[in-house]
């Protein structure tokens, strides 16, 4: 029973990480930029979603607020700042580091240092019984919703014209541009999508993880581990990496709380030593 709960929680957390990691990976795929402010979208989405949901008594409005706000933030960052430095990858990454520090401090200013938590909506509270097993309903909901998002992402990337353009830009941005794909606009779209997914993860994660100063970095570290293990820019890699990190983090925290970081760090180090570009990296 202990193990089943642990695994179920790990999968739910892993799927939440997938929402964040996939945005990070998509943005990297098209722009070659690692967006260090990605954890900040999670943080701001969580704070806004929690606030709006508490004020309006509607979980759905909370999600909408978190997603729309982070998406706008992502678009502004990309169009007003990063786009000027097209191709200068390191300058862009340094800019996102600036935003990481700035947004973390502004969040602390606006929302204070007290951890907040969003109440699980009534329809999703309680647990589901199947056979002899009991699953918390909310975690099941997170897993399913994230799986749906993953499926939708996969279908869009593999089966649509837009997806084909994204894949072309990932493979060779210059050639794609030359063939008439508007790579800067595509980059902005990926930025918006990635930011929205991270904001969504923030609102969804708030009822189980809470929101607090530093949550941005905690999530960013785990998301970086996800893409390092799976391979940056790879869709299946992100899925495998996030499930792995979600499970390892949960099981590690339960078994040896003091050294729980070792649980995903040791495999990550091993993978780095053997395959520096991650399991699915090219």
């Amino acid at each position: 029973m202990f193990w089943i709960t642990l695994v179920a929680n790990g999968v739910a957390f892993g799927m939440l990480l997938f929402l964040i990691g996939s945005g990070l990976s998509l943005i990297f795929g098209v722009m070659r930029v690692v967006n260090l402010a990605h954890g900040s979208y999670y943080l701001i989405g969580a704070y806004l979603g929690t606030g709006v949901a508490a004020a309006t008594n509607s979980f759905l409005l909370g999600i909408a607020a978190g997603v729309v706000a982070t998406m706008l933030l992502g678009v502004v960052m990309q169009t007003a700042f990063l786009e000027r430095f097209g191709g200068q990858i390191l300058a862009q990454v340094l800019l996102t580091m600036g935003f990481l520090l700035l947004l973390a401090d502004l969040s602390l200013w606006v929302w204070g240092g007290t951890p907040q938590i969003l109440a699980i909506p009534d329809a999703l509270s309680g647990s589901v019984r199947a056979g002899g097993f009991v699953f918390p309903r909310y975690r099941l909901f997170i897993s399913l919703l994230s799986a749906l998002v993953a499926l939708a992402l996969y279908l869009v990337l593999e089966r649509t014209r837009l997806g084909a353009q994204v894949r072309a830009a990932v493979d060779d941005p210059e050639m794609a541009q030359g063939l008439g794909v508007n790579v800067p606009r595509l980059s902005t779209a990926m930025f918006a999508l990635g930011a929205a997914l991270a904001g969504l993860a923030g609102v969804l994660g708030s009822p189980i993880l809470g929101v607090f100063p530093g949550a941005d970095l905690e999530i960013l570290t785990l998301a970086l581990a996800v893409v390092i293990i799976g391979g940056l820019g790879s869709f299946p890699g992100t899925l495998v990496g996030s499930l792995f990190v979600g499970l390892a983090d949960n099981i590690g925290k339960a078994l040896f709380p003091e050294l729980s970081y070792i649980a995903f760090f040791a495999p990550m180090a091993l993978i780095l030593a053997v395959r520096p570009r991650g399991l699915f990296g090219r």
């Binding site: 990297f28 070659r32 930029v33 690692v34 260090l36 990858i89 390191l90 990454v93 970095l217 960013l220 570290t221 970086l224 581990a225 893409v227 390092i228 940056l232 709380p257 003091e258 050294l259 729980s260 970081y261 070792i262 760090f265 990550m268 180090a269 780095l272 030593a273 520096p276 570009r277």
Partner: peptide, 30 residues
């Protein structure tokens, strides 16, 4: 050993992750 083979953004994000893991260990190894 883990980073010497990487360059550019990879180097940056791996060192960032390693730094964060070291920080996390320090914080929790009460």
């Amino acid at each position: 050993i883990l980073v010497a083979g990487s360059r550019g953004v990879y180097f940056l994000l791996i060192t960032l992750a390693l730094g964060q893991v070291t920080w996390g260990l320090t914080l929790r190894w009460v």
